[in-house]
Structures are given as structure tokens and as C-alpha cells.
């Protein structure tokens, strides 16, 4: 009975991707004719790290977000993030690096080759999506600024700008939002800095203009709208861990065997299945064990969750 309402169709099926790409080519062509700047996509190269699972629609990815800077409801970021100024944008890179400084975003992106990474994205709240990110490996940026031998952790901060981020007008979190990775996690080729999705620049609600994506960790580790990257020799403070260390560990690797104190992490709901969608099993390291399990060899992941 439940299945009567279930449909395999997605919004992307309304206009097949090939068709809307063609349409976009037409537009691009038309734009070129009137000698305006081309509006071609970002052109991220395909990657072997991408999953073959079908991505969620742009509609789904851009209307179901946790980005408390713009409000706590899932639709708040889509509604409130439009006013965020993302150009100009600078990222302060400091700490244990050879070339610290304030880097303009354009400067950071010059010379990097963008890739499309279609990743599983698993939220700590037990829902998931498939997202076609466009970005580059964090390791290339770290190599460029020169990581000093004493550095062991990478720390990130989100922009604080209450005028444009209405959620920051209340002390809901201790702003700025903070996240961190161990250096070897940061250097893993799966860890990217994303600048786009669906071959277009990142929508503001998804963390424009620059965000982290760490696909084997719960989504809150993938910090958005980054303005600071700092190399440290000590484990940095991270926002959700500061709020409730029992519920949100520093590592926060996707792990179906370690429950969140308030809910099970054994299964997840893939967004887009409608009212009668079935839960599916959550995979260890969100299915990226082959690439990352070695990072945690010998660690008790029940304690270091």
C-alpha cells in the first residue's frame, strides 16, 4: 500500500541532465554571440573517487541544510543566505605554515585543477544525500602554503558577519563556527575544499564560496564559508564538541556501531524518497573505509568517536 505513493522519479528526471546541459550550451553560445562573458560551468574533471550512485537533485541539496548562521530550520539557509557577500573573499592562513597571510580567494584558486567529486554525505542527524561537489584536494593548498613539521592539526573557522548572517545575532553557538582535522585526515585525497556543486559555483546556503568536504565524517565536520585555516600542534576546539562532547566527538567518523546518545546511527534516511521512504544501512566510514580505515588503525573508535 505504501508503495503506491512511491515514485522513482526525481526532479532531475523532469528535465534530463543531457537536455538541460544542451540548453545551457545554447545559452552559452548565445551569450558568446553578444560578446558577454561566457556562463559555462566550472568544468570539474571527473574523479575516480566519485560514487556511481545517482546524485540528489539541486533542489534537494539546496533546500535542506544545517547552517545555523542562517537559522536552525532546514529551509532557513535557503531563505536567508541570499544576502551573503562572497566576493571579495579572503582566507587567513596562519599558524605553523611557511607562508602565512591573508589570501584572496581568486589567488587560492588560481592554478588548482577543479574536479567533480560525487560523494555520499551523511549527517549526524541520520539523513544522507549524494552530492556532486566541485573542488580540489585540501592537500594541494596545504602543500602550497608549506606545512611545518611540528604541525599536527588543521583548524578552520567560518565567517562571522551578523549583518548578513542573521543566526549569528543570537548566541546559539559560540561564533565563529569552528572545525578541525588531524593533519593526516586533512592530507587524505578524499578531503576536498569545495567551490561548487552541480558544476556551478556553490550556492550560499551550501557554504559559499569555499567549504570543506570530508565524506567519511558526519556532515558538521565539513565546515562552510571558511575564512581561516590554521595549522596547529594541538587538537583544536571544535564547535559541536564544545557544546556537547558526549554527543559530538572530535573525530565524528561515520560509524553505524556507535550511536549518538539520542538516536541510533545504524541506519539513515536518504533525502528525496518522500513520506514512505525506507531507511538504509549506514556504512562504516560512510563507505570510504578502503581509503581511510588505515588512519585509525589501533584506535578504539568507541572511545574516540
Amino acid at each position: 500500500m505504501a508503495h503506491r505513493w512511491k515514485s522513482d522519479l526525481n526532479w532531475s528526471d523532469v528535465t534530463p541532465k543531457q537536455a538541460f546541459l544542451n540548453r545551457r550550451q545554447l545559452l552559452t553560445g548565445a551569450a558568446a554571440l553578444v560578446a558577454s562573458p561566457a556562463i559555462a560551468g566550472l568544468g570539474g574533471a571527473p574523479s575516480a573517487y566519485s560514487t556511481t550512485e545517482a546524485p540528489n537533485t539541486l533542489e534537494e541539496i539546496t533546500n535542506y541544510n544545517n547552517f545555523y548562521e542562517f537559522g536552525t530550520d532546514k529551509e532557513d539557509p535557503a531563505q536567508n543566505a541570499g544576502g551573503l557577500t562572497t566576493d571579495p573573499w579572503a582566507v587567513q592562513i596562519d599558524g605553523l605554515v611557511d607562508k602565512p597571510g591573508s589570501y584572496d580567494l581568486g589567488d587560492l584558486l588560481s592554478g588548482v585543477s577543479l574536479e567533480e567529486r560525487i560523494y555520499r554525505f551523511r549527517c549526524v542527524e541520520a539523513w544522507s544525500m549524494i552530492v556532486p561537489w566541485v573542488g580540489f584536494e585540501l592537500s594541494t593548498l596545504l602543500a602550497r602554503v608549506g606545512v611545518q613539521p611540528s604541525a599536527k592539526y588543521v583548524y578552520f573557522e567560518t565567517l562571522v558577519r551578523p549583518e548578513e548572517m542573521p543566526g549569528q545575532r543570537r548566541p546559539l553557538l559560540d561564533w565563529p563556527y569552528r572545525e578541525g582535522l588531524r593533519l593526516d585526515e586533512a592530507m587524505n585525497p578524499l578531503t576536498i575544499l569545495a567551490t561548487g556543486l552541480y558544476d556551478e559555483p556553490l550556492p550560499n546556503q551550501n557554504g559559499a564560496p569555499l567549504r570543506l568536504v570530508v565524506p567519511w565524517k558526519y556532515g558538521f565536520k565539513s565546515i562552510k564559508s571558511i575564512v581561516r585555516i590554521s595549522l596547529m600542534d594541538k587538537q583544536p576546539e571544535t564547535t559541536w564538541n564544545m557544546i556537547n562532547a558526549r554527543e559530538y566527538g572530535f573525530y565524528s567518523n561515520v560509524n553505524p556501531t556507535v550511536d549518538h546518545p539520542r538516536w541510533s546511527q545504524a541506519t539513515e534516511r536518504r533525502i528525496g524518497g518522500g513520506l514512505f521512504s525506507k531507511r538504509q544501512e549506514t556504512l562504516m566510514f560512510n563507505g570510504y573505509g578502503e581509503e581511510v580505515a588505515d588512519l585509525y588503525a589501533g584506535m578504539d573508535l568507541k572511545k574516540l568517536y
Binding site: 535542506y64 532546514k74 539523513w127 534516511r269 518522500g274 521512504s277
Partner: peptide, 14 residues
């Protein structure tokens, strides 16, 4: 919830 009016994740919303 049945017709998409509760957003892309209607179960929690409902």
C-alpha cells in the same frame, strides 16, 4: 507531506 509541500524530507517535518 504526500505532495511535496513539507520540503524534501517530509517524514521528520510531519
Amino acid at each position: 507531506g504526500l505532495t511535496g509541500g513539507l520540503g524534501v524530507e517530509p517524514i521528520k517535518a510531519l
